[in-house]
């Protein structure tokens, strides 16, 4: 039996949304004893699943179903309110590619900064520098400040850095449809080659065709709860029937 590389054990995430914001000293001093009501929003409710090494799992669901929150919990950015997440390997998040870039720095400087933030050593980034630049197709612009790059160039560069992390697990949030058609094909091939070498992928996407094509399993979320966890085709059918019902409603 395959050993789970990720184990999500009864995880819930609650966001407490105050009825009014209280982030200035004035608000603390003027009404020190005032109780501010809070709305408790369950982004995830008792989510339970395991993912084995080499799996490519699609996480699908409508907007606000908890997909991105789940990815952020797996990435260690958010802490679960209840339950535990066990990750047995290195992990690289592909969440909103290029957001961590500093526009004032050059492409070259951002490669080092971003690579190191993702967990690589400077020496390793140095050894992979040419591969990153070539993959991103930005050699002529490498010493230009990133603020002068097109959005496509930024995303290509961010993707090229992140894939070089050679992690055990890749968290992909809508990243297989970035860049132009040529880059999409190239990035997909790269990702598939990493997965065929034993890496594990978790893909959040609204593009059902991508999920159908590449994922061997689907987790369907609805209002923070797992309503289906199993074969891709079956999960997509349920999701599509839900969507159909909702549009009929």
């Amino acid at each position: 039996m395959d050993k789970p590389i990720i184990k999500v054990d009864n995880v819930s995430k609650v966001f407490e949304i105050p009825h009014e914001s209280r982030n200035t000293l004035k608000s603390y001093f003027l009404h020190p004893f005032k109780r501010i009501g809070k709305e408790r929003f369950y982004a995830l409710k008792s989510v339970d699943f395991e993912i084995n090494q080499g799996d490519f799992v699609g996480v699908i669901g409508r907007n606000g179903s908890g997909k991105s929150t789940l990815l952020k919990i797996l990435a260690g950015i958010f802490e679960p309110t209840k339950g535990k997440v066990h990750v047995n390997g290195t992990l690289v998040p592909f969440l909103e590619l290029g957001v961590g870039f500093n526009p004032e720095l050059t492409g070259r400087e951002n490669i080092y900064l971003n690579g190191i933030i993702l967990g690589m050593t400077r020496k390793y980034v140095e050894s992979k520098f040419d591969e990153i630049v070539d993959f991103a197709e930005i050699r002529d612009f490498i010493d230009l400040q990133v603020k002068n790059y097109s959005s496509g160039m930024v995303i290509r560069l961010a993707f090229a850095i992140a894939v070089e992390a050679r992690a055990d697990i890749y968290l992909l949030d809508e990243v297989l449809s970035v860049g132009d058609a040529g880059f999409q094909k190239k990035s997909l091939e790269k990702m598939l080659s990493l997965l065929s070498n034993g890496a594990t992928g978790i893909l959040v996407s609204h593009n059902i065709n991508d999920v159908k094509k590449y994922c061997n399993r689907v987790i369907l979320l609805k209002k923070g709860e797992v309503v289906f966890d199993g074969p891709t085709d079956e999960g997509i059918k349920i999701f599509e029937s839900q969507m159909g019902l909702m549009s009929e409603e």
């Binding site: 290195t90 992990l91 900064l113 190191i116 933030i117 967990g119 690589m120 400077r122 020496k123 992390a165």
Partner: peptide, 14 residues
């Protein structure tokens, strides 16, 4: 291997 001690040192310098 990601997030090693060497990475933390490099992150600090970077």
């Amino acid at each position: 291997v990601l997030h090693t001690k060497a990475n933390h040192r490099d992150l600090l310098i970077e």
